[in-house]
């Protein structure tokens, strides 16, 4: 399949008229888009990849997250960060090849609101947050921030963050997540804690993310060795568990 993007004029024509168009996002396919413009708004890029589809087999769509991160990231790993932050590219994929997936993953058929459509077919938030909310860019960015080629299973950390949607929010939507080393070290510390028998849940991950933010206020984390960050996080997990045990 040849990857496509949309021009800004066409993208904004839909996005700025969502108030009157959002119900069309319940339709079984995206043919209405070409009818709406009188031409296909999808422009071919120079990139083509082997045809592939996304997994829509689970009753709970989030359970497909890990598998779909792998499918998207394996094929589109070559994109630069600059290309992968372009709304025109990701929206074109949602509105074209992955129309049904986007509907499935974000429950568009039973929750077809303007906001839901805007957030998952387009970029509905600020630049950074939109990357993990648009249906397809989210899959790519989870892959980008967690894929670790130095591990036996490069998707080991990906599998961990895909256990829970809150993990993705807490770990990948913070500014520190822009540094791949910090992100991977942070997840790796959670991993170690679990291997040591400490229970990790969404509250722990939320508290630890705040703690990482706090550390970032005093130290320039980007300049510190991985081990230092790893030990700080692991120490904090143990401290939190101690408090909860005493409590």
């Amino acid at each position: 399949m040849i990857l496509t993007y949309m021009g800004y004029d066409d993208l904004f024509a839909i996005k700025s008229n969502l108030e009157s168009l959002y119900k069309k996002f319940e339709l079984p396919d995206a043919k209405w888009i070409s009818e709406y413009f009188g031409y296909s708004p999808f422009v071919q890029t120079k990139y083509s990849v082997d045809d592939f589809s996304l997994d829509t087999s689970q009753e709970k769509p989030f359970l497909t997250e890990f598998e779909n991160v792998r499918r998207i990231y394996n094929r589109l790993k070559f994109l630069s960060s600059s290309q992968a932050s372009d709304e025109r590219f990701w929206s074109a994929l949602c509105l074209n090849h992955f129309w049904e997936y986007t509907q499935y993953r974000w429950d568009i058929l039973s929750n077809c609101t303007k906001n839901n459509v805007e957030q998952h077919f387009f970029f509905g938030f600020g630049a950074r947050r939109s990357l993990t909310r648009n249906a397809i860019s989210r899959l790519w960015w989870i892959g980008r921030l967690t894929y670790d080629s130095s591990r036996k299973d490069p998707y080991e950390l990906t599998r961990f963050v895909c256990e829970n949607a809150d993990y993705i929010m807490h770990i990948l939507e913070r500014n520190t997540s822009n540094n791949l080393t910090i992100t991977k070290t942070f997840i790796s510390a959670l991993f170690t804690a679990r291997q040591e028998g400490l229970m990790i849940n969404t509250n722990t991950v939320g508290d630890l993310s705040k703690y990482l933010n706090l550390l970032g206020g005093t130290y320039i984390l980007d300049c510190l060795p991985e081990k230092w960050i790893h030990d700080k996080i692991l120490g904090k997990i143990k401290e939190l568990k101690l408090i909860s045990t005493k409590g």
């Binding site: 960060s81 600059s82 992968a84 932050s85 600020g126 630049a127 950074r128 990357l131 960015w141 980008r144 921030l145 500014n175 997540s177 822009n178 540094n179 320039i220 980007d222 300049c223």
Partner: peptide, 9 residues
């Protein structure tokens, strides 16, 4: 660069 997730020290 928060838009592209680039961060370097």
């Amino acid at each position: 660069c928060s838009q592209t997730g680039y961060r370097e020290a």
